[in-house]
Design a protein around this nucleic acid. Structure first.
Length: 319
RNA sequence: GGGUCGGUAGCUCAGUCGGUAGAGCAUCGGACUGAAAAUCCGAGUGUCGGCAGUUCAAUUCUGCCCUGACCCA
């Protein structure tokens, strides 16, 4: 039912791509840097928050030295108050890949945002761009009359979509209503038609798996390092630039909790605890997402040599 | 030494007018097609502080003990 129809039926030659995807704090950045450097490739970010400017520490964005070692793409491409999403990402990423492929540069897609990677590799339904007014209208409808009301609306207008969406999941309920309003078609129709079959790439997917309690420790160490590196100052300067705390990217891991701390809604210790806990929850969601993808090859972080051989084997016939 | 209120799931606590219990959080599993570091769904868990008494039946009532907080000496 996952119908990832990316088999090789059509004969158009596929562009090779290396994808490094795994939960946070498993060592993707370092691995990508090593591999890309030796292969003479470039890195294409697949992290939904590293695209934002001024959000460096909390997103564990590669630093300047790392970006000097290997060229990086789709980092720092929008301001925190600009819209960004999976479709936009896929579109931009594909054009960068075309470019690099023309120059015969191996591309290393690196990041933990499963949806972005899927949208890049297999496409995403085509709909008109998100209409913020429309979205806000449905949001306020939800706030005023409740999720049940909104879901009732969907049941009435698009029963097919209502069947596939949980009544409480108002994010998806709203999206379905938007699509219906904007395109006149049910989101389900578009999804069934699309079926993730827009696959111009042949990807080698590499995942790094770290034992759970080790990962928990790495997450805690990472949080501590971020605070030491000045996460609180970074958040303060974002707020000072006039970016409101309700902006989507500021609702993310690390940022949200530091804002709570700065606003006096919790103390520092609680904020740290919540960052660690929420990051752990996030990494578990990532594990659920990535382990459903049976085409990922999993390695332990210390299997550098094995990974390099696998990569060599993947690249050799193509370049 | 006396008194008051507590001791129930890993944590915070609710509850049983006597028929062996439940929420939130944590934990575990899952979903995910233009918000995805978002959003949502599902599932455990217990010698109800200990011992004894009353009772067909006690976590619930009684007694003693242990233990925590506070108050009075």
């Amino acid at each position: 039912m996952k119908s990832n129809d990316c088999s090789n039926e059509n004969k158009a030659p596929k562009i090779p791509l290396i994808v490094i995807c795994s939960p946070t704090a498993t060592g993707k950045t370092q691995l990508a840097l090593d591999l890309a450097e030796t292969a003479g490739g470039e890195i294409l970010n697949a992290d939904s928050l590293q695209v934002y400017r001024y959000m460096d520490i909390g997103t564990a964005k590669p630093g300047l030295d790392e970006r000097n070692r290997v060229p990086h793409h789709l980092i720092d491409v929008v301001d925190p108050d600009e819209d960004y999403n999976a479709a936009l990402y896929a579109q931009q990423a594909r054009s960068i890949i075309d470019d690099l492929n023309r120059k015969k540069k191996p591309v290393f897609v690196v990041g933990g945002t499963g949806l972005y990677i899927r949208a890049l590799l297999s496409g995403i339904i085509e709909t008109p761009p998100v209409d913020e007014n429309l979205r806000n209208y449905y949001r306020s409808l939800r706030d005023r009359r409740g999720r049940e009301y909104l879901y009732g609306l969907l049941q009435h207008r698009d029963p097919q979509a209502a069947l596939r969406i949980n009544p409480n999941d108002s994010v998806r309920v709203i999206r379905a209503l938007e699509v219906l309003d904007q395109s006149g078609e049910s989101i389900v129709t578009l999804q069934l038609k699309h079926a993730f079959s827009d696959c111009p790439y042949e990807a080698l997917k590499i995942g790094l798996s770290v034992e759970r309690n080790v990962l928990k420790e790495r997450i805690a160490a990472r949080t501590a390092k971020m605070l030491e590196a000045g996460l609180i100052d970074e958040v303060q300067s974002l707020l000072a630039r006039g970016y409101g705390e309700n902006l989507k990217p500021l609702q993310s891991l690390g940022y949200k909790q530091v804002i709570d701390f700065l606003r006096g809604r919790c103390n520092r210790e609680e904020a740290v605890h919540q960052i660690n806990r929420d990051t752990w929850h996030y990494s578990k969601r990532q594990m659920t997402w990535f382990s459903a993808d049976k085409t990922i090859d999993w390695f332990a972080p210390d299997q550098q040599e094995t990974i390099k051989n696998r990569l060599k084997e993947f690249l050799s016939p193509k370049i």
